[in-house]
Amino acid sequence: MKLLFQIFLTFFKLSPITFGGGYAMIPVIQREVVEEKRWLEEEEVTDLFALAGSIPGAIAINAATFIGYRIAGITGAIAATIGVMIPTFFIVVALSIFYVFFSGHPKVEAAFEGIRPAVVALIVFAAFKMRKSAVVDKTTFAVAAAAFMLLLFFRFHPVFVIALGAVSGILLIGIKDRLGIETAVDDHEQQIEYFMGADI
């Protein structure tokens, strides 16, 4: 029980600094979990982060769940997940209350008028950052273009397009393997770069 509370507290403290995306957490987690508490080895934490990136959901939360599990099994995983989520949850709810209270106020409306194009820039920037790891060859470029068309012009549901992407990955690699074409399907560093700040 004491260990579970310690896990909870560790991730509770770390959570508010996950501002710059999940990977901003790595050095801090390493210091806490590896050097201070001596729960895990350094390489283990790095591996867990890579693994956390290949599971749907925010990398910071997934990594916390993974690390909690490695330390104390299922209850550890749950303690870490709750710990990492609670601070940001309350911050966001506080902002929501603030938003309900002030939306409609001319000054606030004016601020949002200016913020909206900045959000568009933020999103374009997110796409820009992952271009190298996502579009690695002509095939992936075609997949990206096709997916974009399906979304914008044919109004496919995003969930359906995501499923199509997964299936097309298997099919395309299958076909390429048959034809004997080499494909760079894995690049560990690329994946790291792709997820860096992906969930700012």
């Binding site: 996502a134 992936t140 990206a144 914008l152 995501i162 992407g165 097309s168 298997i170």
Partner: peptide, 19 residues
């Protein structure tokens, strides 16, 4: 790995679509 090979370009398309 094949799944992610297909998913990553879709993710970039989704982001551009959002923008």
């Amino acid at each position: 790995k094949s799944i992610f090979y297909g998913l990553r370009p879709v993710v970039i398309a989704l982001i551009l679509f959002a923008s």
